[in-house]
Amino acid sequence: MDHREALIAASNNRANLNYVAPGIEVQGLSLTYPDEPNALIDINLSIPGGEVTAVIGPSGCGKSTLLRCFNRMNDMLEGCQYSGSITLGDLNILDPMTDVTLLRRRVGMVFQQPNPFPMSIYDNVAYGPRIGGLRRRRDLDEVVENALRLAALWDEVKGQLGKNATVLSLGQQQRLVIARAIAVQPEVLLMDEPASSLDPISTLRIEELIYELKQSYTIVIVTHNMQQAARVSDRTAFLNQGQVVEYDATDKIFTNPSQRATEDYITGRYG
């Protein structure tokens, strides 16, 4: 299916309250870096659409690496080799012939550090739609306003859209980055420790935002904060040394993990 049609379909679907974003199927995914041959080992995950999935695990276990596989950001790293398959709906993500720029419009990503572009707030949010070919000012205005409203930033910045985005507070910047990501209407939103550099109140706002968004987006979030994982996610995957130790409903993981390692990690006896 052509991406444009897919997008129109997604938009139309999203208008429909019964719309559920597609899920991600990971099968036999292994990944090596030049100096880290076991970054990911035989990962099998079935991430359901329209839900929030948390990925937890000690530092260096491969969480970010896994996340970057979903929109092929690993391609930019030299010497990174991977095998296995990841599918999003009917799209084979790891297929060499897959167009990564299109893929990345369907799978948005938010990073640990807020990274607004050195331009105005408006231009930041309009960036994605613009490179997608949206040119009409009225359309852009609408997209920007909606995205900012969805990211719960509209009320704070509506009078100053022309202001340079880099002068916003960190919490505002991170919400701006989320608004920027959802302005291109992705189906999946990847968040790599989105709140780790924020204060508690900003963190809370981000969590509320995730809750708001989860109806129409499939969200995968990496976090080191156990409470956060418990609060926002429906399912949780625990990774250790490049392997999935346990993957289950969040309630189950946090109340009654089946693996000893998971319990150790959650209760803080680990990492």
């Binding site: 950001m73 720029t101 893929l103 948005g108 572009f117 331009m119 960036y127 490179i131 990501a181 291109v184």
Partner: peptide, 24 residues
């Protein structure tokens, strides 16, 4: 991190260079 953010939005490397790296 800036260019990465742009690429994650589906921009081509050159476009993210032009929009994000070059101004700085």
């Amino acid at each position: 991190i800036g260019a990465t953010g742009s690429i994650a939005l589906g921009a081509t490397p050159w476009r993210s260079f032009q929009d994000v790296v070059l101004p700085v």
